[in-house]
Amino acid sequence: MIELKNVQKVYKTGDETVTALKNINLTIQDGEFIAIVGPSGSGKSTLLHLIGGLDKISDGEILVDGKNLQKLKDKELSHYRNKEIGFVFQDFHLQSHLTLLENVEIPLMFATGKKRKEATMQKKAKELLTLVDVGDRMNHRPAEISGGQKQRTAIARAIINKPHILLADEPTGNLDSQTGKSIIDLLKKLHKKENMTLIVVTHDREIANEAERIVEIKDGKLIESKRSEKFTR
């Protein structure tokens, strides 16, 4: 369960202060699929980064399964990102000099605890690449594949450590609508199969309507948290 209590995020750049999030209260149950919508600059990405432990809140608290993210040390927070969170970005963020297979293996490198053998790591990464339908391109580099395939690879990378929470920040933003649809289908499939909490930031109403719940943000404030049309209907 993810609990946001009076979360505030203020950015300071020089003399300027930008309040990106104001007084956010939100509870997300395990296994939920949530869409976050809102205009550009409203604070959607910021919210996702805070939940994912990539950024620190200015006020309030975020509890994930009872853990207060603010109180975690760098090692613990890194472990949290590595094991409990999967990130999918709008512009994929694949390493251009590594093959798809190597890209997918990266999170395994940072997994603490018992050391895995390279062969085991490779086997796991191959399975996932096959699962997301790029198994036949795994020794290619990102420059040699399509945008959709890049995002599929990024998704495989996000889930290799079997996270509880999958965070996707406009995962279809750089893709045509048909490809975008297939990516959302893949995310939904994984969400169901692994019972992961799925939080997708999107501009696209149609995509948002696939979610179980839609959270709308405007100017850093949560203005609506409702069941999606599909479910209210």
């Binding site: 990102r81 390493q95 999170p107 490198m109």
Partner: peptide
């Protein structure tokens, strides 16, 4: 920087 950022997002600690 970008590489470092991604690695951090994927769970790399400072030590990593």
């Amino acid at each position: 920087k970008n590489e470092i950022g991604i690695f951090r997002a994927l769970g790399a600690s400072r030590t990593n």
